[in-house]
Simulated scan of single mutants.
Amino acid sequence: MAETTINEAKNDIKPPSPHLENLKTVFKKLRANKAAMVGGFLILFFIIVSIVGPYLTPHDPYVTNVSDKLHGPSAEYWFGTDNLGRDIFTRIIHGMSLTLYIGFSSVIIGLVIGVVIGLISGYYGKKIDAVLMRFIDVLLAFPGILLALAIVSILGASLNNVIIAVGIFSVPMFARIVRGSTLAVKKLEYVDAVKALGASDARIIFRHILPNIMSPIIVQATIRMATAILTAAGLSFLGLGAQPPTPEWGAMLSAGRNYMWDSPHIALFPGLAIVIVVLSFNLFGDGLRDALDPKMKA
């Protein structure tokens, strides 16, 4: 009777999930990477500030006060005021949510389109692969910023068009990475076994191949956030992105360049905000790449 109870208890104990063990291993590697942890905490901080910050700022980001224009940093205006008397600190906080929205939206567009193209190209190969990869090669022939610049010039200067442009120029990187990973995974034995059981191509691609190539996709998406934010800020700096009086960091940097000698703080603080956010995503992306690499020791 006692042996039966012990055996039943053993049967009730489930082995730990391999996915949970993998997550623990990844987190352990990330925690050991101090630079990645700093980047991750900064990203989390920016997300929280972008959500809560606009409700706590002391001034209105759009209200002008010419009598207070070009003031340097002070107790009332932490980052000073711009040429129209608007509080730069308030505008940077309000612009943070806009910057992250542009980055996330454009990366999602590039990720979805690029992943679909890469999966189809890598799985089917032959003529489909040749046609899709020639299209990707055409996009890769243009430097990223020039491609985005050309798209915005055609579509017109607006925030939504910047998101579309940055998303399109992100497609080739995702497509090439996913295609290479798909070519490697589809040769594995378990894919042949699933085919032999009569599974459809769609089921094989999205249920068996895609989950096993998520690591490089996640890493690329994280690093691509930095590139997307930087590119969007560059387009706004050139006057092709968010239009005044929208508190977008690239547009604020562009407005401040005319006052670099007399009031450098107008361009300094938006520029620092861009640098810190981009650096945070790069640090976290590099650490995530090392953590998800099975060849790296914990």
Rank of each mutant, 00 (worst) to 15 (best):
L238E: 11
S280H: 08
L119H: 01
I213N: 01
H94A: 04
M133I: 04
K186A: 03
S67N: 15
I223C: 12
L159R: 05
S254Q: 12
A221R: 10
S254I: 08
G114F: 11
T4M: 03
V162I: 05
S170T: 14
F104K: 15
M260L: 14
A228F: 04
G180W: 03
S74R: 07
I217E: 09
E248P: 01
G144T: 12
I151T: 06
V185E: 13
F104Q: 15
S121H: 02
T81F: 00
G40W: 13
L132D: 00
D87M: 00
L23C: 02
T90V: 13
S67F: 15
K14N: 07
Y124I: 09
T4A: 03
E189R: 12
P244K: 00
S97P: 08
H208N: 08
R257P: 05
I229M: 05
L70V: 11
P211Y: 13
V166Q: 12
A298G: 15
T227L: 06
I151H: 11
T5Q: 14
N161K: 11
F135W: 12
V178H: 14
G241Q: 00
I213A: 04
P15C: 13
L84G: 09
F41W: 14
L159S: 08
V152K: 09
S158A: 00
V277C: 12
S121E: 04
R207A: 14
P244N: 00
W249C: 01
V219K: 01
L111A: 13
L30T: 13
M96T: 14
L149I: 07
V52R: 03
K28I: 09
I213D: 09
H265K: 02
E8T: 08
D68K: 10
E3V: 10
K24Y: 04
I209N: 08
H208C: 10
M225I: 00
H208T: 11
V166F: 12
P244H: 03
F174H: 13
S74M: 03
V178A: 14
D82M: 00
A233L: 01
F284W: 11
I117E: 09
I51P: 08
L147A: 05
T64D: 06
A232L: 03
Q243R: 10
I266K: 09
G285C: 04
L20M: 13
D262F: 06
I120K: 10
Y259H: 06
I145G: 11
I47V: 15
L132V: 00
L149F: 04
G167V: 00
M214V: 09
A193W: 14
V171E: 07
L98H: 09
H19C: 15
E3Q: 10
M133A: 02
A242S: 04
V49I: 15
A242Q: 01
T5A: 14
S17D: 10
G85M: 00
